[in-house]
């Protein structure tokens, strides 16, 4: 699923094989209409809702307006959540990269006949419910659990506990989106010609230099795709913060959810959503441009 995004899209078929005819539009129409009506229009609605003003005297009712101050209000009240979202997602993405890279490298380069089985094992955890998997971390990281006891014995935990701290939230995010990191990395490393590694060894590069100068640069498309596919859902997630963190660890997703569903403050919730989406898109495009791989679609 994820690898598809990582795949180089530029290999379009020779022009001769493509036909220009009305059939093309007919094939596109139903699906694109669906995306237009239920994705594009809702985003537009979201934007309009974010500018609505409360109706005087009728609590919970909002009317179309151009109240830009909603955005200011949202930022003033929720900037810590914004900050936390990007910080937690960023740290989780880095950790996932560190864990996923050796795994993906091993599967792509060394696993041989175990390759398929290992790939299946990477995606298999996704078959168990996301919520239950996250909930299971409550058991693993509980205060008297072996993990916590061990780390406490080493005196490395600032609060002597993991559960209901930011560490647990970041651990949960790292865990949950790890397969999204592994698969694109695998796809990139699998394309790596092993002879390039040999050539580098032959040309006086030791294993570390070979990694720095050959393997890493050639796997960059996978790194870019993997970090995006991990960072985006992690930044918008609120399940990990809700199930594993304390009220001090709430992320922007929690704020959107409570404002929409509990407070029914639609303009503020919409402003938050819209800003989250805009921030992510800006980050994504800046990142892709910097990494020089624009063929993500």
């Amino acid at each position: 699923m994820v690898v598809g995004v990582a795949a180089k899209g530029g290999t379009s078929i020779a022009p001769g094989a493509q036909r220009r005819s009305r059939t093309g539009y007919f094939l596109l129409l139903p699906g694109m209409a669906w995306l237009g009506i239920f994705f594009a229009i809702p985003i537009a609605t979201l934007f309009m809702t974010s500018l609505q003003a409360p109706v005087e005297g009728a609590s919970g009712q909002y009317a179309p307006a151009f109240q830009v101050s909603n955005y200011a209000d949202a930022i003033i009240e929720y900037w810590p959540q914004f900050l936390r979202s990007f910080l937690y997602a960023g740290i989780a993405t880095l950790l996932a990269l560190v864990i996923a890279y050796p795994l993906a490298y091993f599967i792509a380069v060394k696993a041989g006949r175990w390759r398929t089985l290992m790939l299946v094992l990477v995606i298999a955890p996704s078959f168990a419910s996301f919520l239950l998997r996250t909930y299971a971390w409550r058991t693993i990281l509980a205060d008297e659990s072996p993990v916590t006891t061990f780390l406490n014995a080493l005196h490395v935990l600032p609060d002597d506990r993991i559960l209901n701290t930011s560490i647990a939230v970041i651990a949960g995010l790292t865990y949950n989106f790890l397969p999204f990191m592994v698969l694109p990395l695998y796809a990139a490393l699998e394309r790596l010609d092993p002879r390039l590694i040999e050539a580098s060894n032959d040309l006086y590069a030791n294993p570390i230099t070979t990694f720095r100068k050959v393997t890493w640069p050639l796997s960059l498309p996978g790194v870019v795709a993997g970090t995006l596919l991990t960072f985006i859902p992690a930044a918008g997630d609120y399940i990990n913060a809700e199930l594993l963190g304390s009220t001090q660890d709430r992320m922007i997703g929690n704020a959107i959810q409570t404002n929409f569903i509990d407070f029914r403050d639609y303009p503020i919730a919409s402003a938050l959503s819209f800003m989250l989406m805009a921030a992510i898109l800006v980050l994504v495009f800046a990142y892709i441009r910097r990494a020089g791989t624009e063929d993500l679609v």
């Binding site: 979201l46 995006l228 918008g236 997630d237 997703g253 959503s273 819209f274 989250l276």
Partner: peptide
């Protein structure tokens, strides 16, 4: 590239 929470919220809107 859109977080689920944004898609969910926008459809709800």
């Amino acid at each position: 590239a859109t977080p689920e929470v944004v898609m969910g919220a926008s459809l709800l809107a």
